[in-house]
Simulated assay, not measured.
Amino acid sequence: MIIPNNKLGFHLKSLQSTMTTLLRGGRGNMGTSKPIMPEKMLVLYEHEACPYSRRVREVMTRLNLDYESRPSPHKGHVYRDELKELAGKAQVPFLIDDNTGDKILDSQAIIDHLFAHYSKKGSTSDKFKAPSGDNATLINKSASVVSMMRGVKAVHPEKNQARGKPNEPLHLYGFEASPFCRLVREKLSELEVGYINHNVAREQIQDVGGFGVRLNMGEYHPIKGGKRDHIMNDVMPDKLQFPYLIDPNTETKMFESKDIIKYLDKTYG
């Protein structure tokens, strides 16, 4: 780890993570308020700094889909070994959709599949088509360079493998473009800890903001009947803040990326 794990290091990582968001031009921010959620959970083998995985996660946010992330960073074994067996090689992203019986290895093919089955339009939006849809272009790869110090390879592969998978997957609420959610995802990738990624995309202009401040000056109201409305009422009452982690293995529920990262290091590091 090149950047130290202290207060200054956290601020530097936050700045780098924000640069990734800026380089991506806001992709992974907005999404539909009423997603077409598959009956069976989608499974995605990925790692955080992979530009091709990022393209898929951005579409997951656009469609506001939940999925099980199985982090498969370089040098890792917890999920990467089974990835090799299932896909024939250790390449990410790799999607398993038990709703359709599909197993897909190519990022553009995954994106086309997601739009075909889980979008109201039923076809891939021009913004997400390759090559104009940014099939790991220079800008996307530059965004990955910013994250190269984190989330690329397993930190302690032998210890991670000895620990194995948690009895139950963790639950992370957030959205792709959030710099602070990204820091938590990077840590989960380093530790090879599987989790359910609950996308809670911004659904309207009133959702836009940062550091606890939104563009609307009055009382905040999510779109009635939308996904954020459900999350606000049923998951984190009276407070809509991301990232939000739930670990059913230890009955832990917590906000704040810095605190979550410390918890993950202590519990799974």
Rank of each mutant, 00 (worst) to 15 (best):
R202I: 12
G209E: 07
G76W: 02
A154T: 09
C50T: 02
S142G: 15
H47P: 00
E158H: 13
V208G: 09
D265I: 01
L240D: 07
D247P: 13
E158G: 13
I261L: 04
F10I: 01
L65G: 08
N99M: 11
Q16C: 13
S119H: 10
M30H: 03
N167L: 05
K89T: 08
N216P: 00
K75L: 11
P222E: 01
G164Y: 06
I36M: 03
P38Q: 09
D81K: 05
N160E: 14
E48T: 02
K127P: 03
D238P: 09
K120Y: 14
A143L: 14
H156D: 04
Y45D: 12
P179R: 12
L170F: 15
R228C: 10
P222N: 07
N5E: 06
T100Y: 05
S142Y: 15
E158A: 15
E68R: 12
R54G: 00
V78D: 01
M217V: 15
E85F: 07
V145C: 14
N249W: 10
A130Q: 03
R70L: 14
E68A: 07
D81C: 01
I260N: 03
K34F: 14
M236S: 15
K253V: 09
C181T: 10
Y45M: 14
K40C: 10
A143T: 13
Y173E: 06
Y79R: 08
C181D: 08
R202M: 14
T20N: 09
E158W: 12
L8Y: 06
